[in-house]
């Protein structure tokens, strides 16, 4: 058994929080720290935890290390639904908003899955391709809506880019609550998730109903992603990178991986957001852009490693 590496992970989380609370051109003015940086840090932690958890769930349930909410189209589905809601005047404080965003995330995810499955046996590459196709279409839809509706486009543009801007405390509490519930429910089924990580065929023969677990894990991952998107817009690669990094500490079993992915995602995004505030200060880089700058090369490295593994 691997050693318990939780203290290391918690130290990383604490460091990221301190960085996020201290970083910025205004120094350590108490007002700024308390009223601006603290809510923002909390939002980064919640969004990062939700995306890290969703990534670990997708990578396990699909037995595919290349999957995460961004690549599967889950985030795009949630973002498209959120933008449509904003345009229709449904605000983030409404339960209807969360319901619509979840429907968008769930619909886009199953569309990608179904498209990848059309070819017969589910392959890693087919899933990534289907996710790219679904994402591209939904992103185009969002751009169409933004181009057509001019008045609100500027603020929505930043939402689509992915950034942790001030939001109502109620939205933060609701999102954090949803993510915590998803994490707790996922932990109840950690052994089924491990079985799914051997493939649906093996999962069935180990005593797990793969069709049922797939719907369950997809639902939890989509709910966590929706809560993250409602708070921070489209932020990619947290869900992809985090499980790969924390697996080095915890091993692949979901029992340790799921909580570690949530903690690790929170630390990663808090650090990325703080870096975005400091790197080109006083200009501010959205957290989504920072994550893409770090995550896209990471994805390329995964593809390269995968290609080498098959050779």
């Amino acid at each position: 058994m691997r050693k318990n590496r939780l203290p290391l992970l918690l130290a990383a989380l604490a460091a990221a929080c301190l960085f996020s609370l201290a970083a910025g051109p205004a120094g350590l003015a108490p007002d700024i720290v308390w009223h601006l940086r603290l809510p923002r840090t909390l939002a980064a932690l919640a969004v990062g935890a939700g995306l890290g958890l969703a990534g670990a769930l997708f990578q396990g349930a699909l037995k595919n290390p290349l999957s995460d909410p961004y690549i599967l189209g889950t985030s795009s589905g949630a973002t498209a639904a959120a933008v449509l809601c904003f345009m229709a005047g449904i605000e983030r404080t409404s339960p209807l908003f969360f319901a619509a965003v979840f429907a968008g995330a769930f619909g886009a995810t199953f569309l990608s899955y179904w498209l990848a499955r059309l070819a017969g046996r589910l392959s890693d590459a087919a899933l990534v391709l289907a996710g790219v196709a679904v994402s591209a279409f939904l992103s185009a839809l969002v751009m169409l809506v933004l181009s057509a509706g001019r008045e609100r486009s500027f603020s929505l543009f930043y939402f689509v880019l992915g950034g942790l801007y001030p939001s109502e405390p109620g939205v933060l509490a609701a999102s954090a609550g949803i993510i915590a519930v998803c994490a707790a429910l996922a932990m109840l089924r950690w052994r089924a998730l491990d079985a799914m990580a051997l493939g649906e065929d093996s999962a069935y023969h180990l005593g797990v109903d793969p069709a049922r677990e797939r719907v369950l894990f997809f639902s939890l991952a989509c709910a966590a992603t929706s809560a993250a998107v409602a708070l921070g817009g489209t932020i990619g690669f947290v869900g992809l990178m985090t499980p790969h990094i924390v697996r080095l500490l915890t091993g692949p079993s979901a029992r340790a991986l799921l909580p570690a992915a949530a903690v690790g995602g929170a630390a990663l995004l808090a650090a990325a957001d703080a870096a975005g505030r400091t790197l080109f200060s006083p200009a501010e880089i959205p957290a989504g852009v920072v994550m893409a700058l770090a995550g896209a090369p990471f994805f390329m490295w995964l593809l390269w490693r995968g290609a080498r593994g098959r050779a």
Partner: peptide, 24 residues
């Protein structure tokens, strides 16, 4: 049976207990 994840042999064998162990 192939998996991209580095389960240890003992973890893999323990997964055989999926249907026997209490689920929570």
């Amino acid at each position: 049976t192939a998996t991209p994840y580095d389960f240890s042999v003992r973890e893999m064998v323990l997964l055989g207990r999926t249907a026997r162990a209490g689920f929570w």
